[in-house]
Structure formats: C-alpha cells, structure tokens
Design a protein around this nucleic acid. Structure first.
Lengths: 146, 146
DNA sequence: ATCACTGCAAACTATTTGCAAAAAG
DNA sequence: CTTTTTGCAAATAGTTTGCAGTGAT
C-alpha cells in the first residue's frame, strides 16, 4: 500500500511535468514512510536534513506547495503557528476527522462515518475531552464561478 | 439580542478583572454591530481606526487574545494568512458549520443540525461547489490531563 | 495613587521571492 | 543544451514583546 501510493505520487509528479529531484524524493518518501500523519514544514525539513543535509527550507516549502497544487497533499490549519500537511488518501478523504489537543497541539485522526455519536465515542474511547468542534467545507462560492 | 449580548460581554470583561478601555469597547462594539461574522485582526483594526485613529494594532491583538481567553471569542484558522475571530454564541456553538471559498477566502456560516444531507443542501441551496471538508474537534488529550 | 493598558518600534516566526549556480531530462 | 530546480539570503506578512507614558478604577 505504501509502495503503491509512493509510486503513484512519484509518477503523478513526473506526469505533470515536474522533475524528480532527490530532494523531492526524500520529502515524499519520508512523509509517507513515517507514521506521523500531519507534518509541519519544519518537521519535514529536520527529517530530510538527516539524509540530505544540504537541503534548504525553501525547497521544502516549494515542494509541499507543488504537491498541494497536484492535489496530492492536503493542507491543514489546525491551530497556531504553522500549516500541516498530509497525503490525500482518496479512501478516507472527504470524510476526514481530526482531534486536536489545545494544550500540546497533538493531532490525532479518526476514521468514522457516523457523526452525532462520534463525539461521544471520542470522549469515551479515546479519553479525549472535547471542548469544541468545527466543521469546515472548502469549495468555490457562487461569486467565484466565472 | 445584540444589546443583551453586548452587555454580557462588557460585564464579563470587567468581572474578570480587566479594565474597560475605550479601545476595548470599540473593538467589541464594532465586532458585534457589524454583520460580518468572521473578523481578521486587520479588519478590526481598520474599522476601529475610523472612530479611534490613535489605536495601535498591538491593542487589537491583545484584546482579541484576552477575549479568547475569556471564551467570549472563538478563533478560527480557515485558510492562509491570518486567524479570524467571531463571538462565541452559546446558542449555535458546538454545532458550528462554515463554508470557505478557496478562491476569494469568503467565509459563510450555516446553522444546521443535520450533517450527511448538509453537503447536498449547501451545494444546491447556496450554489457552493464543495471540493473538500474537514471536521475538527478541539479539546484536551489523554496525555495532557494532569 | 496604583497598576493595568496603550502606542510605538523592534523582535520574532512562518513563508515567499530573487538570483546565480547546479542538475534533471 | 535547455529549462527547471536548488540553496542562500533578503523580503514579506502576521503576530508578539519591551518599554515608557497614559488612563481606568
């Protein structure tokens, strides 16, 4: 699954006329390999630097931006400071729930289709004390359709 | 309703040991009076400046931060650039849906309790082309409870 | 009169951009 | 060989902070 997805990503990048540089490979591989789901740019940078010390953070920013434009990455704005990225997985996409700790900022993921009961389950099963939630839809509004 | 809430906010600020300065009054009044629901700091600043030209943007930042700590304002991270604030209304809170145009950044609000059907309704009734959605729960995680 | 609050400017953090050198195709 | 991409450093944008003066209670 991981390998299949990796190849899918890599060929998608090439097919869209982008070059496959070592830096881009490293970024994609590390983001997919590691079990941490939601990456900040700093985290990606630090991790890639271990294996490719010459990389600059601008490259990380440009790469995630490119991947987002190809709809391969999803950008999240959970809380303060920085955006976080995760690979868009079509199996779970568009039905995508997150729980965010307002104290430590940790982001956890839930994959469920129910919703009203969901909250109770999170409280009970995950021992997560929900204080608030937001549901946000992204899209193109009436005025912006040309 | 507007007046009741305004007084509620103002006394809440005082009761918590904070002083009611003209700047704070202006910020609260303007945010409540205007029909625009989701305010960026720049927008608040520009609006207050019309009636109180000497205000500094740091005061706006400090005020919304204070109001957020009192749980009077809710902070949102809809998309790029800046946070947006709206008054926490207990009647609609915790059941709070937003639609965000990814082209112009406009934020619109929906007040509904249904959810699965909701998306279809937004598409049809509001002529808003949904491309993605996120559901985010905020709270305190297991590790952070002391 | 006291202590919180303000405005200003400087500091800080996340992100973007210009550019010359490097490298992918 | 051409055109994209890179790393660096400088620029930008949003937000925070230090500080001396101001003002609410």
């Amino acid at each position: 699954m991981s390998t299949i997805s990796l190849n899918r990503i890599l060929s998608n990048v090439k097919e869209n006329g982008h070059k496959l540089t070592p830096q881009r490979r490293y970024i994609i591989e590390i983001m997919m390999k590691n079990n941490q789901e939601h990456w900040s740019t700093e985290e990606i940078y630090a991790e890639v630097k271990k294996v490719c010390p010459e990389i600059g953070i601008a490259t990380v920013y440009r790469t995630v931006q490119m991947l987002e434009e190809l709809n391969l990455l999803t950008k999240h704005h959970f809380s303060e400071g920085c955006s976080r990225y995760e690979f868009a997985d079509e199996t779970k996409n568009h039905n995508h729930h997150h729980i965010v700790c307002t104290k430590c900022g940790k982001v956890m993921e839930i994959q469920d289709t129910y919703f009203d009961e969901l909250e109770r389950h999170i409280q009970d099963d995950m021992n997560f004390n929900i204080t608030n939630h937001t549901v946000t839809f992204y899209g193109i509004c009436e005025d912006c359709k040309e």
